[in-house]
């Protein structure tokens, strides 16, 4: 370490260090990337089947020119853009759509996915994928079964409403006591995603508030 070096020596050292580091990083990236992609795809697939009871196969759809288009990647990668996932049961019959959505929670972005049955216009399941809500309070949006149960059979029209008493209407969600902000956040995220997606799904119409007139005109789907 006692070397006093000239500029050439210093540049050479850092250049070699940077090059070897870059080589190591590229190698590890190439080695791990397929596995990381597969982990993500498997986690998403498990979540889709969880929020769409009865589904055993899924297919991704993305928006192309305002229309739902099947997304197929030869290498099985997930779409980079916003997508919804149609779920099919063993007989190949469609059971609904799994819709990923995200929005601000109490502390950080909440990412979730929920299952929607267009035939019955109901939400049939919801799973929070990522959140940093307060442990013991806000994280009940994941851990409180009674709260998650709200989303097993929930009408989407006119929109979801959070209530602090026992739910009486089909579109109401019981808030978690002590975690009102997190409960509201989940419902708001789903409402926003509904407004964006439901008109684009088969059977969608203007009963759900559309975010813009453009979106309302494109109420067509793949089926």
């Amino acid at each position: 370490m006692a070397i006093e070096a000239g500029p050439a020596r210093m540049m050479a050292t850092l250049g070699i260090a940077g090059l070897s580091s870059g080589f190591a990083l590229v190698s590890i990236h190439l080695l791990t990337q397929p596995r990381i992609e597969r982990n993500r795809a498997e986690a998403l697939e498990a979540a889709i089947y969880h929020v769409l009871p009865g589904a055993s196969r899924s297919e991704a759809f993305v928006l192309r020119d305002g229309e739902l288009t099947p997304f197929r990647d030869p290498e099985g990668r997930l779409p980079d853009e916003e997508a919804v996932y149609a779920g099919y049961d063993d007989a190949g019959e469609p059971v609904g759509f799994a819709i990923p959505a995200e929005g601000p929670g109490f502390q950080d972005t909440i990412k979730l996915i929920y299952g929607y049955d267009p035939a019955r216009r109901r939400i049939v399941g919801m799973e929070v994928l990522e959140s940093r809500e307060t442990p013991g309070l806000g994280d009940k949006i994941i851990k409180d079964d009674a709260f998650v149960e709200n989303f097993r059979d929930l009408a989407v029209t006119p929109e979801l409403v959070v209530v602090k008493r026992k739910r009486t209407r089909e579109n109401e969600v019981d808030a978690i006591s002590g975690a009102t902000i997190s409960s509201n956040a989940v419902v708001r995220i789903i409402n926003e995603a509904n407004a964006r997606w439901l008109v684009r799904l088969p059977g969608g119409d203007a009963t759900v508030r559309a975010p813009s007139p453009v979106a309302a005109q494109t109420a067509r789907g793949p089926d």
């Binding site: 370490m1 006692a2 070397i3 006093e4 070096a5 020596r9 210093m10 050292t13 850092l14």
Partner: peptide, 9 residues
């Protein structure tokens, strides 16, 4: 340690 110059350690 013997090849890294002191200034850029």
């Amino acid at each position: 340690r013997s090849v890294i110059p002191k200034q850029v350690r």
